[in-house]
Write a protein that binds this DNA or RNA. Structure first.
Length: 824
RNA sequence: GCCGAAGUGGCGGAAUGGUAGACGCGCUGGUCUCAAAAACCAGUGGGAGCAAUCCCGUGUCGGUUCGAGUCCGACCUUCGGCACCA
């Protein structure tokens, strides 16, 4: 040991001073300002904007830090990176807080945003705050209204009845979140479902295109969830005759994916909400059916669809005739059939459907086999048979394989005009109406003469009045505001009333990413030139909880806008990575659950860099996990050790003997580390990237103690360490950069490159296995041939011991890894 | 219930089908100190053995393979979503 700088004089840095100093300097230097007309290739990196609940919690930090690290990395890789931030500022929570604390939602929201901006700044992100988007401002939500009108004029927005959660005591509509075990969270009254006329966006028009994920690079699990959510199924709609009742409807139409089983129909089931239920119920069954329908209205869809729950149903007293075999089968009502799926009624084929089988057994309905299993002896089935088989009891189709029967029977149904092939989706149209105050007013007026009339673009925005009563009353809050409601028809000038529902906040988040391209543009939702420059989001990041709804809605918006000629790309988010959820007390952090942990105390205690490092090191970013702060001091130790390496006087090294091998091996590790960190950060594997940097810095400490490298190699190593660390620890890296005499700013430097030759190992450790069990390790040259490797393995003493008395059957060689000797 | 994931030391986790436990926390011992803290050094999956070394071990049960934490099947547990939280 030749050097005199010992670690007894270890210095720790002052993170408070450092953060303030560099934050100010970054702002003065405008290093995070993003210009549209930059010669570098563009990279649009977006993280899902937060809901301004009041406090940024560690879950937000975890998510946003990861996105910031990746965006910083891409910037150093030479891209002009747009990495903006904003707030999803409308929504239920503001209204609830207002009701609870008497603060106006606007005031509550804006002060929360103010606080969260401060917290976000302390994280040291590279946001360009000039591009911030806040959705509750009129210059944002006027474009929600404009989009609504575009969709409306093109047949993609319509009104229809749909059930809402209704609290009969509070006389108000409740969100699902406000219904706890079927009771109103405020007054514990049983919540009922009540139909209201509401606005929908026709997302189902795009169902097939939304199934296509080929233009994007998304995680398979998200694609799978979306595919299942859309739930495309091909089948046949087939009529059953009810003309005997002399109703307007001569037939009822069912949807089935198994038309091959149509000869096995022994009953028909209607959804309890189906309009035909009351018409088809006979007087002696009316009381029972009505009670059943009311009971069903109390249940959630999840409860109704549960396969665990006992199947229930009631007979209407009426029958329908199966046109294929002229059989008269009973019509029942059962809650496992949903009005919103298919035609709202199904044909019951107990022999070949599990649910129908259980149902038929319970209600003693006949079970007739029409698809015979192989080797079927004609006896009754003990459970539903859903595998392929042969058509039996199926009239002219008997003897066909059921796959063929499926097609032939469909042809037969179509030829006779009894029905037709059709495609059904599980996904429903997007219900955007909310009977709430804190949202975007829907720009429609109802004129006494002209009826439903859109507000002209020139009258936008329809301003949300500030002085509305938002306490629960039984009506949409805006309906009570006379100044808002009463207006004149834009077409004829007659007295008219405004639509008083507001929009789902998912409307805001379906296009906010388009707004960041030109957030101050006044002549449209976005400046076509600016959007032309930035285009689709190259890298989108956010919580896996948004896998279906938000991501499908945003995709729908972009496709609809493309078809209306406003956009020229097909998908909003080219690449998607989901960070995992940070849970605390075994649940996702959320203010309403009361389990949030704020980062502020940690930031003040150990500094932003350490909190960032800790979160990125906790585990894989895509996994998330239970929050605890056990290891956070270890990260502070590491950053302090790194700082201590940085401030050493490198010239001391030149006073001792340099070992060329040591220099070479430090260089090798440096290039290996650059490679590892580059590849890991690219793939959002921050935890292993940080581990590699730790190994590198640990090794620097050892090299210094040994005094075997020259100052040049040392300084180069420290310089590269600062560059590699800069996305994760932006403050410390800047301080290191300054300390080693480089010029401002480390964040404007190119990312370091690695040289494969310098990173290559000269010798490797080869594992010797006998029958798959580790028996020895041998050091060999990295370029060893297969024959030599096998020979050396067979010669190894310990391999010999374990193969003694056995015959070597096979020798498997995995280059660079191992030799496995198979012997017995 | 349905859809999608995850399960590895005392803890967080690492591991292109190829050395299980990198990196870090914690713990144990040591250095420094009057002492403590901090920092630094060493050790640290379980079992047997003086040792060399051997056996066991990645939620459970089974399978594929020369070789399985990794692939396949069944199950258990936990988490996310289920259309008005966003």
């Amino acid at each position: 040991m030749a050097t005199t700088a010992s670690h007894s004089s270890r210095m720790s840095y002052d993170h408070h001073d450092m953060q303030t100093r560099w934050s100010d300097r970054w702002e003065e230097g405008g290093i995070y300002t993003v210009e549209d007309d930059d010669p570098r290739p563009k990279w649009y990196e977006l993280h899902m904007y937060p809901y301004p609940s009041g406090d940024l919690h560690v879950g937000h930090w975890f998510a946003m830090t990861g996105a910031d690290v990746h965006a910083r990395f891409m910037r150093m890789k030479g891209y002009n990176v747009l990495h903006p931030m904003g707030f999803d500022a409308f929504g239920l929570n503001a209204e609830n807080a207002a009701i609870k604390n008497g603060i106006h939602p606007h005031k509550w929201t804006m002060s929360n945003i103010e606080n969260m901006r401060r917290q976000l700044r302390s994280m040291g992100p590279m946001y360009d705050w000039d591009r911030e988007v806040v959705t509750c401002t009129p210059d944002y939500y006027r474009w929600n209204q404009w989009f609504f009108l575009q969709l409306y004029k093109n047949g993609l927005a319509y009104r229809s009845d749909a059930p809402v959660n209704w609290c009969p005591s509070c006389q108000t509509v409740l969100a699902n979140e406000q219904v706890v075990n079927g009771l109103c969270e405020r007054c514990d009254t049983s919540v009922v479902h009540r139909d209201m006329e509401q606005w929908f966006f026709k997302i189902t028009d795009y169902a097939d295109e939304l199934l296509d994920h080929s233009k994007m690079d998304w995680p398979d699990r998200i694609n799978a969830m979306q595919t299942n959510w859309i739930g495309r199924s091909e089948g046949v709609e087939v009529d059953f005759d009810i003309s005997e009742y002399g109703l307007e409807e001569k037939a009822i139409r069912t949807f089935t994916t198994r038309i091959d089983t149509v000869y096995g129909v022994t009953f028909i089931v209607l959804a309890p909400e189906h309009p035909l239920v009351s018409k088809l119920t006979t007087s002696e069954h009316r009381e029972e059916v009505q009670a059943y329908v009311e009971e069903a209205r109390l249940q959630t869809e999840i409860e109704r669809l549960s396969t665990e729950k006992e199947k229930t149903g009631v007979f209407t007293g009426s029958f329908a005739v199966n046109k294929l075999n002229d059989e008269r089968v009973p019509i029942l009502v059962a809650d496992y059939v949903l009005l919103s799926y298919g035609t709202g009624m199904v044909m019951g084929v107990p022999a070949h459907d599990e649910r129908d089988f259980v149902f038929a057994q319970k209600y003693n309905l006949p079970i007739r086999t029409v698809i015979a299993p192989p080797d079927w002896d004609g006896s009754d089935l003990e459970e539903a048979y859903i595998e392929p088989g042969t058509q039996v009891n199926s009239g002219q189709f008997d003897g066909m394989p059921n796959a063929e029967g499926l097609e032939r029977i469909a042809d037969f149904v179509e030829a006779n005009g009894w029905g037709e092939r059709s495609v059904n989706y599980r996904m429903r149209d997007w219900l955007i109406s909310r009977q709430r105050y804190w949202g975007t007013p829907i720009p429609i007026v109802f004129c006494e003469k002209c009826g439903e009339t859109p507000v002209p673009d020139s009258d936008l925005p329809v301003l949300l009045p500030e002085d509305a009563e938002f306490l629960p009353t039984g009506d949409s809050p805006l309906a009570l505001h006379e100044g808002f409601v009463n207006t004149t028809c834009p077409d004829c000038g007659s007295p008219a009333k405004r639509e008083t529902d507001t929009m789902d906040t998912f409307v805001d988040s379906s296009w906010y990413f388009l707004r960041y391209a030109s957030p101050h543009f006044e002549d449209g939702p976005f400046d076509p030139d600016a959007l032309g420059q930035w285009g689709a989001v190259d890298q989108y990041t956010g919580g896996v909880e948004h896998a279906v709804m938000h991501l499908l809605y945003a995709r729908f918006f972009v496709k609809a806008l493309r078809d209306l000629g406003y956009l020229n790309f097909d998908e909003p988010f080219v690449r998607l990575v989901n960070q995992g959820t940070i849970v605390f007390n075994h649940q996702k952090m959320s203010k309403s659950r009361g389990n949030v942990i704020a980062p502020d105390a940690y930031v003040s205690d150990v500094g932003s860099d350490v909190v960032r490092t800790y979160m990125m090191f906790m585990g894989p970013w895509e996994a998330g996990g239970e929050w605890n702060d056990d290891g956070i001091n270890g990260m502070a130790r590491w950053t302090n050790r790194v700082w201590d390496l940085t401030i050493r006087d490198a010239s001391l090294l030149d006073q001792s003997d340099t070992h060329p091998d040591a220099v070479k091996s430090l260089q090798r590790l440096q290039h290996q580390t650059i490679k590892k960190v580059t590849e890991d950060v690219e793939r959002f594997k921050f935890n292993t990237a940080i581990a590699a940097m730790m190994e590198f810095s640990n090794s620097l400490g050892q090299v210094w103690d040994a005094g075997v490298v020259d100052s040049e190699a040392w300084t180069d190593a420290v310089r590269n360490l600062a560059l590699l660390m800069s996305p994760v620890t932006p403050f410390l890296a800047e301080e290191m950069w300054d300390q080693i005499g480089e010029s401002f700013s480390v964040h404007q430097q190119p990312w370091p490159e690695w040289d494969p030759d310098l990173a290559a190992d000269e010798t490797i450790t080869l594992v010797v296995q006998v029958n798959g069990r580790l028996r020895d390790r041998i050091d060999v040259p990295a370029n060893i041939s297969e024959e030599d490797a096998k020979a050396r393995a067979l010669e190894s003493d310990r391999a010999k011991t374990h193969t003694e008395g056995k015959e070597v059957r096979r020798v498997i060689y995995v280059p660079g890894r191992l030799v496995n000797i198979v012997a017995n």
